[in-house]
């Protein structure tokens, strides 16, 4: 399994809390981007007088594997 915390060449202690916030930050920033995209599609559809058809949004949010963050 890919394990980020025990890779070679670490000299800074990134800090667990810091890593978690990074994930949250990436998630929050990411989901806002997605929300606006969806919303924008709705607005466009409204003005064009079309019916809004939701599209599959490709998620590029952080992939959290085999771990549960209990915050």
């Amino acid at each position: 399994m890919f394990n980020i915390l025990f890779k070679v060449n670490y000299y800074l202690n990134p800090g667990t809390g810091s890593l978690i916030v990074q994930l949250i930050a990436a998630g929050i920033i990411g989901s806002i981007g997605i929300l606006i995209k969806v919303f924008w599609a709705r607005i466009k559809a409204f003005f064009k007088g079309e019916k809004y058809v939701p599209q599959q949004v490709e998620a590029t949010d952080p992939v959290i594997e085999e771990t549960e963050i209990n915050e």
Binding site: M1, F2, N3, I4, L5, G15, T16, G17, S18, L19, I20, V21, Q22, L23, I24, A25, A26, G27, I29, G30, G33, T60, D61, P62, V63, I64, E65, E66, T67, E68, I69, N70, E71
Partner: peptide, 26 residues
């Protein structure tokens, strides 16, 4: 978060990945 995890011995981020796009978003 730093305060919350300052004392934790288990690392809840082990095995966590973040793709390049997310890193760029940060």
């Amino acid at each position: 978060a730093e305060k919350r995890y300052a004392q934790s011995e288990a690392l809840p981020t082990a095995g966590v990945k973040m793709d390049k796009a997310s890193l760029l978003r940060i």
